[in-house]
């Protein structure tokens, strides 16, 4: 009797085990959906909507695999570098023509109907119609030009590998190297942890350079002497987030700054003294995780402004130019 009971109980247990397996296999969740060690930036990405002072007014879809750089000339033509070409849009946002390149341009600047492209470690010059004028001698073999800006006397090229600004005249003669680390002259040098090193020339012909590793924007004199800098590291909107930001910036005609930070994917407007004025846009949308995936290559690959003060952001994820206009 006792034996029968034990066997019966055992068999019930056995059936129980089988049921457990069955239940787990067909009805169970594959894994816990909560992440105990979640790293969540959503809170930091949330921005008070009253701080947002720009509206996205229009987007231009691009037919490129990869998009690298964006610039706008004085006639409001838009130049986009990506793949092995440059696409040019007129002020009505219609594509006018495409310039084919031998290799991909990382950055470009336009002045007086002349295009200056940073390609690897050298600068190439084209007419705005696409005729190649010259290819300048590279500074050294390891260079990598990440940003370029032109005014009527100088071409400044930011070289992320050499951590310095190369100053050329319009004919491609290297005039001097700016900001190279030099202990004797107590120049700290740029801290460039990744291939983001941007520069811009203001309407007043002032040279501004981002020093991402120190979260600051530096103003140099024409010849390259340090004049001033501003910027603090902070996850809050008042500063630049993460270890190396801003990665891109451009300047409005009144001397204020438009900056883009990777990581938190936000475009901000700072006044002439560097104080936060407002937020242009923040890419904290529902697909936030997607951004984390591609954030190593930041979402926005370049910024530009036109004479009307509209801000153009080159969205590398959606392959389009987003145009923001002041509210």
């Amino acid at each position: 009797m006792k034996q029968k009971l034990v066997i019966a109980l055992s068999l019930i247990l056995l059936i129980g085990v089988i049921f457990l397996i069955y239940n787990d296999l067909f009805n169970g969740n594959p894994a816990d959906s909560t992440n105990a060690t979640e790293y969540n930036l959503e809170k930091l990405k949330q921005i008070d909507s009253s701080l947002i002072c720009y509206n996205e007014v229009i987007t231009i879809d691009l037919t490129m695999e990869s998009v690298n750089a964006l610039t706008i000339d004085s006639n409001s033509n838009i130049y986009v570098a990506g793949d092995n070409e440059i696409q040019i849009f007129d002020k009505t946002l219609q594509k006018t023509h495409t310039i084919k390149l031998d290799s991909s341009a990382n950055c470009l600047a336009v002045f007086d109907n002349t295009l200056y492209l940073g390609v690897g470690n050298y600068v190439e010059v084209y007419t705005s119609k696409g005729v190649k004028l010259s290819r300048w001698k590279s500074f050294n073999s390891k260079g990598y030009i990440t940003s370029i800006a032109v005014n009527k006397t100088n071409v400044y090229a930011a070289d992320a590998e050499n951590k310095a600004i190369l100053r050329y005249n319009l004919n491609g003669v290297l005039l001097n190297v700016i900001g190279k680390k030099d202990k004797d002259k107590s120049i700290d040098g740029f801290i460039i942890p990744s291939m983001y090193f941007d520069l811009a020339i203001s309407a007043e012909n002032e040279l501004w350079v981002a020093n991402p590793g120190k979260h600051e924007l530096i103003n140099f004199t024409e010849k390259g002497d340090f004049r001033t800098s501003w910027g603090i590291a902070s996850m809050q909107t008042t500063g630049f987030a993460g270890c190396c930001n801003p990665i891109h910036f451009c300047m409005l005609s009144n001397g204020s700054f438009v900056t883009f930070e990777k990581g938190l994917d936000r475009i901000k407007l700072h006044d002439q003294t560097g104080k936060l004025e407002c937020i242009v846009a923040s890419f904290s949308d529902a697909n936030a995780q997607a951004l984390d995936n591609c954030s190593i290559g930041a979402r926005v690959h370049d910024l530009a402004t036109d004479l009307q003060g509209n801000i153009y952001a080159l969205d590398a994820k959606d392959k389009k130019i987003r145009v923001f206009s002041r509210k």
């Binding site: 790293y39 942890p193 990744s194 993460g242 270890c243 990777k262 990581g263 984390d292 954030s295 190593i296």
Partner: peptide, 10 residues
């Protein structure tokens, strides 16, 4: 990894 990817070089 997530922190480094978001702000750093990954």
């Amino acid at each position: 990894v997530k922190g480094c990817g978001a702000f750093g070089n990954g």
